[in-house]
C-alpha cells in the first residue's frame, strides 16, 4: 500500500492552462521546426502546510497548520495560472530566445503552450514555445 502511495506522490500530472497559435505561413511545411521551454518551480505553500499538519499526527498541530494555510491562502488570492513561482526572471528571456532561435530568418507558426507538471506541493511551471524558421 505504501509503495502505491509513494508512486502516486511521485507521478506528475500535466495540466494545460493555455494554448495559443499565432499566424501560420504554409511555408512552414518546408521550414525548420524549433522548440524550447521556459520553466520555473512553483510552490503551493498552503498545500505544504496542510500536508505537514496531517503528517504530524497531532490534532492541535493539524488545526494550527490549517489556520496558517488559510492565512497564507489570503495572500495568494486572485486570478492566476498554476502555482506561485518565486522568481521574477521567469519568462523574462522569451523575446531573446525567440530571436536567437532563427537568426536572420523569418519566424512563423509560433505556438505557446502554458502548462504545469503538478506534484504534491511543488510543480513545474512551464511555457513551451515552438515555431518554424522560414
Amino acid at each position: 500500500m505504501s509503495k502505491i502511495i509513494i508512486l502516486l506522490l511521485l507521478s506528475s500530472c500535466a495540466i494545460i492552462h493555455k494554448h495559443q497559435v499565432q499566424d501560420v505561413d504554409s511555408k512552414i511545411l518546408k521550414g525548420k521546426r524549433f522548440e524550447f521551454l521556459l520553466s520555473e518551480t512553483g510552490v503551493e505553500v498552503t498545500e505544504g502546510v496542510r500536508l505537514a499538519g496531517v503528517l504530524s499526527g497531532n490534532k492541535n498541530t493539524n488545526r494550527s497548520a490549517q489556520g496558517v494555510a488559510n492565512i497564507i491562502g489570503l495572500f495568494q488570492m486572485g486570478p492566476r495560472t498554476g502555482n506561485p513561482v518565486y522568481s521574477l526572471e521567469f519568462a523574462k528571456g522569451l523575446n531573446k530566445k525567440l530571436a536567437e532561435a532563427c537568426k536572420g530568418k523569418e519566424l512563423s507558426g509560433l505556438t505557446f503552450l502554458r502548462e504545469m507538471n503538478k506534484y504534491p506541493v511543488v510543480s513545474g511551471e512551464i511555457i513551451k514555445v515552438a515555431g518554424y524558421c522560414l
Partner: peptide, 17 residues
Amino acid sequence: LNFDNKFVDEMEKELAE
C-alpha cells in the same frame, strides 16, 4: 491522469496543410 501534453503539438502544421 495526464502525463504529457504532446497531443497539442503540430496543430499549426495541420492548418498549413
